[in-house]
Simulated assay, not measured.
Amino acid sequence: MAALPDPALGDIVCAALRRQVEKLGLSIGDEPVWAQATFVETVDPYSQEINLIGTWRGQARYGTVTIFPDRRIFAEYQVLLPHPAKEGSYVEAVQVWGLPEKLRGDAVLAEFSR
């Protein structure tokens, strides 16, 4: 298991994920919690660069964060709540990506099965 990355970076990533949820008018409370993620280093098969992968699991929701060597971030965290404005749909997850100082994001929507 790799060392936990900078807590300040964690605050940025977790806050960005929560903001994506809040933009939809929903809340996932104080999730995700950076200190609850476990991290491992992986080697990208194409670039051979070492990426740091964090995973949140064991709670009500699952999520991952990838920290690339050039400081780019990609994170996804489950929401699993009905969409407040789209009947028959729910917010499966939210994603954020980019450099820590300029993270962008979006929601992943799905339809309820019938």
Rank of each mutant, 00 (worst) to 15 (best):
D30K: 15
G29Y: 00
V21Y: 01
E22P: 00
A16P: 04
V33Y: 03
D30Q: 08
D30N: 14
T42K: 11
Q36V: 15
P32K: 12
Q36H: 15
P45Y: 08
C14L: 05
D44F: 07
Q48C: 06
L26N: 00
I28T: 01
V33L: 08
V43L: 13
A37C: 08
T42N: 11
T42C: 12
I12F: 07
W34Y: 04
G25K: 09
V21S: 00
E31R: 12
L24F: 02
R18D: 03
R18T: 00
T38R: 06
R19T: 09
Q48D: 15
E49C: 06
E41G: 12
F39N: 04
R18H: 02
E22W: 01
F39L: 00
F39V: 06
E31W: 13
W34H: 04
D30S: 13
A15Y: 03
S47F: 02
T38K: 11
E22T: 13
V33E: 10
K23Q: 13
V21A: 02
F39A: 10
D11I: 11
L26G: 11
V40E: 11
V33R: 11
I50A: 15
W34L: 09
D30L: 15
I12Q: 09
I50P: 09
S47D: 01
V43C: 08
V40N: 07
A16Q: 02
V43Y: 06
Q36T: 15
G25Q: 09
D44S: 15
A16G: 07
V43N: 08
I28Q: 03
R18W: 01
P32M: 04
G29A: 03
Q48G: 14
P32N: 04
Q48H: 13
C14W: 00
Q36P: 12
A37T: 10
P45I: 07
S47V: 02
A35H: 05
C14V: 10
V33G: 10
A35S: 14
D44P: 08
E41D: 12
L24K: 03
L24D: 03
A35N: 10
S47L: 04
V40Y: 04
S27N: 07
P45K: 15
A16D: 05
E22F: 03
A37Q: 05
T38E: 09
E49T: 10
